[in-house]
Design a binder for these strands. Structure first.
Ligand SMILES: [Mg+2]
Ligand SMILES: [Mg+2]
Length: 1225
RNA sequence: ACAGGAAGCGG
DNA sequence: ATTACTATAGCCGCTTCCTGT
């Protein structure tokens, strides 16, 4: 395992070879709470009973509510080991280098004994007597000449002292000495890299620091001048993440002046922290270390905010908390650690100056809730609660971007003195950290406001851990992850109503409480704390960094630890201004720095991705599109890039490459690659070593998982395995990351180049050695057509390929990933397949990659239709003709459901993410999701970058101008419910959602066509529009036509139609299924049996018929009418195609005569006119629907009967040959 | 067809 | 009591849609 090979990789319990921590003994950690202030939480969901073999102790979970709670306030004795050493579990660290003396605060937990009971308490170690350390590269002829290096070192020391007296007297040098160190990074030294002589200078942290670029007569470069105190502490004391660390006996003491809010506090120096010197020493201490991590106290929070006006910032209205005193930082197989001693706390304030409703205070108190007169009192109560509970973890949904942002803003605005009680650092003299107008202030505020505690954002983590989810709001997450529908979204409009009664206030607080509880459960179920802890222990960064998903930071610290321990001088961290300055200097000397313009502040993200592409990545083979019936094998290199790093020994120390200045001057990638040479027989580099260790550890973990039965340990191994994989895989990406301290473009480019080479040669091997066809491949995989339907044969071939490829490499390894019984290959990165799970049992599994149906920016209806069709097409038991037949029928049915309004609203929602603040979009007017986001903002909802915006597309015909931008027709689904005049644009959904998706899928399928698909879907609106436009040359304003209508003329016509009996079906009621004729629906008071009923009601059940639904059915039936007329002329398939003449000659035989059509259309138009006059003008919903219905009828009449036949052709060939030319002789 | 913009899948 | 200050973000490849010329 990892730790066996690398002693410095930490000594946390999870590195030990016996990963079996005893169960956390909950009864020893006594929760703090005041019974009067907290309510015993009731789980909203079904309580989970543990069926697994959870140790007996978790049964006695209910901690007796003894007065021992009081012990937490009283004195307690911190437990020491027999020698007097102190074990400390590290959680967070903060640096304050402007204090005097400069300090680092280490926050964590210690074991205490109060009376006879054992428990854990928060602890702050205040580290003083810190040192800085920098290295000066000595100017020597021959670096390997030790004697001359010694002389140079002395000279440099003298020179430094002279410089100090002249320029930086405050530098307090403690000692300096000649040291040989390695250097292998991108900053050029003007000499060969390798083991070089440096003057190592150690100085007091309190003093000032020399300027960054310091150089002199005896030294050419300086390193580490700006390194932070915390970083040095982490590296020198080898602090590898959240684990137990031992303080030497008598190396820590208490001071009366407290600097933290922690239960215990000690002053220490860096040397107090024990660092095992040897492997045996480490093993010894590991066996004495506390066997498991301490239980963590988690406070999850849900804020209800609200906005007085759109200009003002959000205020805090109510706060719900869920308190969990014994959450495990290792894996947990059940929720028992979450449920132990769980409490809730919730409070609300007045909305405005008005008092709470009658009896509200009493009712709230009875429910265990608190009420306050204003925001200040509410916030103070919350801070008090936080301090009292002293959480190790504050969890929330969007806690960075929303909660902490709002809190810091309000604490600042209201000048709350106790703001720092949110964290563990006493800072009564400081002001609330607040950076108005800066971005990502939530992140900054988070680290600053809650110093000493972990901040866990479930939204942030869910995006990473559940990447396939479309929407990450709390309600959806609770549904998907917990199966809970308890989370309800509070719409801004509804807030005031909650203040109407004591009961509704209670409801609001209960909602917030449930939110908070769900947040805790989600964090638990995603195993956020255990996973981030593992990642942190592997990299040796801060836990809070891992909780923010800062991969680059993780990788950076991993490499810092690694190179530091191998006696390397580390590359300096470059600030933004330093980097700019360097690029200017270097760019100015060179030839314009190649492609990089002297560009000014960020050439603002092209696409949603920032910056341009710096070098080429993976190779993607051209797919041979089609539907495959033979077995296709998928072979895939496992962990391609980590393997390549090992295979070719790619490292800073091994690859001969251009330095950063030379790289900046490169004009092409070919040039870069030609000057980058892979090593030849060199010693194994650091990167390959690290990766080998990670990969080997993972192999061990996976092996032990096979025999492990205990679910809790299994879970822990699974998490560890995952962390190892994530760490290995993030190495390559960080090499190519421009802002990384270890950025090395030549190495990154070399790795991908080797990847392309591997794929290309694999393809060649398959084609030439095995004479097989590679139908596709992406970066690390090949799809090989086996040209057989015999599974055993295919597997045999696959094994052959595997052997042929693998014999070419040491570390690279290709494996058989899958055998597909069906494969539909559409485009690069887009395919659907049926994977063989068990050939004998004929068990298959669908695999969908990249298709529209896996993307959230297509509506659910279109995706579901696409998936249903795809399933049929891929079905190996299905006859091809049959499945096509089925598809056509399915499409027609679905289209009818759409028209009949039988498809629920949520199936029409399209989701798109905001990549920036809505205000920052340059052309917001053209983007539907931005428009909707702005509408949400104006309703008082919070909208932030990264948020998903769901919208639907409405038909806005009749509202203002004829043409309207798509973006203007997009609406939040919730608005549909608020405004009944809104109506989904079915024609748009058919044309722009359903049709494209279906057409692309069926594009490689025989026996259908785009036109046929369109026909099944009943798409014709587009053609109407074209036809009408062509004839009229302008749009028609149907609404104004109504206004001008002559009532008398209308009356005449009413008489004319008195006995007219329409053959149109009428509207089908969604409720009872009964059909109401159009005349009865639109003008109930006319017709043969006049009724005094309101319009738009069902004749059978009197239910309201939605105008939008009626219109869609109307549209469909008129179209059906014309189609029937046309089909009267369509010749049977076996006859020779007729000419126009022969069809016209048969006119009289048509079942639906031209006369009938004309009469029906006239009647239809008449009905609309009459109905419009009978309807109040204010009823916008009805008027709009009627306008659209009349437009439908008029559109057909405009085309005219002599053209119906030509239209008939259109039905079958909407997307085929040009239409308009043939329409009018 | 070109340009600009926006999506987020894939490895 | 008020003010100024700090700084972060894995990589690349590919398809599709919208608006405007
Ligand atoms: Mg792979
Ligand atoms: Mg792959």
């Amino acid at each position: 395992m990892l730790d066996q090979e690398h002693s410095h990789m930490g000594h946390g319990p999870l590195q030990s070879s016996a990963p079996t921590p005893p169960p956390v003994d909950i009864s020893q950690d006594v929760p703090m709470h005041l019974p009067t202030e907290e309510t015993q939480a009731r789980a909203p969901g079904p309580t989970r009973s543990t069926t697994m073999d959870v140790n007996a102790r978790s049964e006695q979970v209910d901690v007796p509510e003894t007065p021992s709670d009081l012990l937490d306030q009283g004195p307690c004795e911190v437990e020491r080991d027999p020698e007097g050493g102190l074990w400390f579990f590290l959680i967070d660290a903060v640096e304050d280098d402007r204090a005097s003396p400069p300090r680092v605060y280490l926050f964590g937990k210690v074991k205490v004994r109060s009376g006879s009971a054992e428990a854990y308490r928060s602890c702050c170690l205040v580290v003083e007597k810190l040192e800085r350390c920098f290295h000066l590269l000595l100017k020597v002829e021959d670096p390997s000449d030790y004697e001359s290096a010694k002389i140079a070192a002395n000279a440099a020391a003298v020179e430094l002292e002279t410089l100090r007296k002249e320029k930086f007297q405050n530098l307090k040098v403690i000692r300096s000495k000649l040291k040989y160190r390695n250097y292998a990074f991108e900053k050029p030294l003007g000499q060969a890299l390798g083991n070089l002589p440096f003057l190592k200078v150690v100085c007091e942290a309190a003093g000032s620091v020399p300027p960054v670029g310091l150089a002199g007569d005896n030294f050419t470069h300086s390193f580490g001048i700006q390194a932070s105190l915390l970083e040095r502490l982490l590296l020198t004391r080898r602090l590898m993440g959240p684990s137990w660390y031992r303080l030497h006996p008598d190396s820590f003491k208490e001071e009366p002046a407290r600097l933290s809010h922690c239960a215990t506090e000690f002053r220490i120096t860096p040397a107090s922290i024990q660092v095992p010197k040897t492997e045996t020493e480490k093993t010894q201490w590991n066996s004495r270390m506390p066997a498991s991590s301490p239980p963590l106290r988690v406070l999850s929070v849900s804020l209800q905010t609200f906005q007085q006006t759109a200009q003002l910032s959000h205020e805090v209205l109510a706060i719900g908390c869920s308190l969990h005193p014994t959450v495990s930082a290792d894996a947990s197989a059940s929720e028992s650690d979450l449920e132990n001693s769980r409490r809730t706390w919730a409070a609300i304030r007045r909305l405005d100056a008005n008092p709470f409703p009658r009896d509200a205070d009493k009712a709230l108190a009875a429910g265990g809730f608190h009420s306050y007169n204003n925001e200040l009192a509410l916030l103070n109560a919350f801070l008090l609660k936080v301090q009292e509970f002293d959480p190790d973890v504050i969890a929330g949904h969007n806690v960075f971007s929303v909660d902490l942002d709002v809190l810091s803003s309000r604490l600042h605005q209201l000048k709350v003195q106790n703001w720092h009680r949110l964290g563990r650092l006493r800072r009564s003299k400081d002001r609330v950290p607040r950076n108005e107008g800066r971005q990502a202030q939530g992140f900054w505020a988070g680290t600053s406001l809650a110093a000493g505690r972990l901040v866990c954002d479930t939204a942030l983590q869910a995006k990473d851990l559940l990447p396939k989810l479309g929407c990450y709001d709390l309600a959806n997450l609770a549904k998907e992850q917990l199966g809970s529908t308890d989370v309800k979204i509070v719409e801004p409009e509804a807030i005031a109503e909650y203040y109407d009664s004591a009961r509704s206030l209670l409801n609001l607080l209960q909602l917030k409480t449930v939110d908070a509880y769900c947040i805790a459960r989600i964090a638990h179920s995603l195993q956020i704390l255990p996973l981030t802890r593992q990642l942190t222990c592997l990299a040796g960064n801060l836990w809070n960094g891992s909780l923010q998903n800062k991969r680059a930071e993780r990788n950076e610290l991993l490499l810092c630890h690694e190179f530091h321990s191998k006696k390397f001088v580390l590359p300096d961290k470059e600030s933004l201004s330093q980097k700019k300055r360097r690029l200017q200097i270097e760019g100015g000397q060179g030839i314009s720095a190649g492609f990089d313009e002297p560009d000014e502040p960020e050439a603002q993200a092209t696409g949603s991705r920032k910056g341009k592409v710096a070098y080429s990545g993976g190779l993607v083979l051209e797919p041979q599109a089609g539907l495959y019936d033979d077995l296709v094998m998928l072979l895939d290199f496992n962990s391609l890039y980590p393997s390549i790093i090992q295979e070719y020994n790619i490292c800073f120390t091994t690859v001969d490459r251009p330095d950063e200045n030379e790289v900046a001057k490169m004009t092409s990638e070919a040039q870069l690659l030609s000057q980058t040479r892979e090593p030849d027989g060199a010693e194994e580099g650091i990167l390959p070593q690290v990766l080998r260790r990670l990969v080997d550890s993972r192999r061990v973990v996976k092996a032990s998982m096979k025999s492990e039965k205990n679910p809790k340990i299994l879970q822990m191994l699974e998490i560890r395995q995952k962390a190892l994989k994530l760490t290995a895989n993030s190495m390559y990406g960080c090499l190519g990351f421009q802002n990384s301290r270890f950025h090395a473009k030549p190495l990154a480019a070399l790795i991908t180049a080797k990847g392309r080479e591997a794929l290309q040669s694999t393809k060649t091997v398959v084609q030439q050695e095995l004479q097989l066809e590679v139908v596709y491949g992406d970066t690390d995989s090949v799809f090989v057509n086996s040209k057989t339907a015999d599974f055993q044969k295919a597997m045999h071939i696959a094994e052959q390929i595997k052997r042929a490829v693998n014999k070419r490499y040491r570390r690279l390894e290709i494996e058989i990933d899958a055998v597909f019984v069906r494969l539909m290959l559409l485009k690069k990165k887009k395919y659907a397949a049926l994977k063989v799970v068990n050939w004998e049992k004929k068990l298959f599994e669908q695999e969908l990659k990249g298709l529209d149906i896996v993307r959230r920016d297509w509506c659910g209806l279109a995706k579901e239709m696409g998936e249903a069709i795809l399933t049929k097409i891929l079905d190996p038991n299905m006859n091809k003709e049959e499945s096509i037949e089925w598809v056509h029928q399915f499409l027609s049915e679905q289209a009818k459901k759409m028209d009949d309004g039988q498809v629920p609203l949520d199936k029409f929602v399209i989701t798109k993410g905001l990549t920036k603040d809505p205000k920052d979009y340059p052309d917001a007017k053209k983007q539907p999701h931005v428009q909707v986001a702005l509408r949400l903002l104006s309703r008082g909802k919070q909208v932030r970058p990264g948020q998903e915006i769901g919208y639907v597309v409405c038909d806005t015909t009749g509202e203002g101008e004829g043409k309207s931008l798509l973006a203007e027709r997009a609406r939040d689904p919730h608005e549909m419910e608020l405004d009944p005049t809104l109506c989904l644009d079915m024609a748009w959904y058919k044309k722009h959602q359903v049709h494209p998706i279906i057409a692309r899928i069926l594009g490689v399928v025989e026996g259908t066509s785009r036109g046929r698909i369109a026909e099944c879907l009943g798409m014709d609106a587009a053609i109407f529009a074209q036809v009408v436009q062509h004839e009229e040359g302008e749009g028609l304003d149907f609404l104004s036509q109504y206004m001008d209508a002559d009532p008398n003329a209308l009356f005449d016509r009413s008489l004319r139609y008195k006995n007219f009996s329409s053959i149109l079906d009428g509207v089908k009621c969604k409720k009872c299924g009964g059909t109401t004729p159009w005349q009865r629906l639109l003008t109930p008071s006319t017709g043969e049996e006049p009724k005094q009923a309101p319009p738009f009601t069902c004749k059978d059940c009197q239910a309201q018929i939605q105008p939008g639904v009626a219109r869609n059915q109307w549209h469909r039936q008129l179209r059906q009418l014309v189609k029937q007329h046309c089909e009267g002329w369509v010749q049977p398939a076996d006859q020779v195609a007729g000419t126009e003449k022969t069809r016209r000659a048969n006119k009289g035989d048509n079942l639906v005569s031209e006369q009938t059509v004309k009469k029906e259309l006239q009647f239809a138009a008449h009905l609309c006119e009459s109905a419009a006059l009978l309807t109040a003008e204010e009823d916008a919903a009805l008027q709009t629907a009627l306008a659209r219905m009349k437009k439908d009828a008029d559109a057909w009449m405009k085309i005219g009967c002599q053209h119906f036949i030509d239209c008939g052709q259109m039905f079958g060939a909407i997307f085929g040959t040009p239409l308009l030319g043939t329409l009018h002789q």
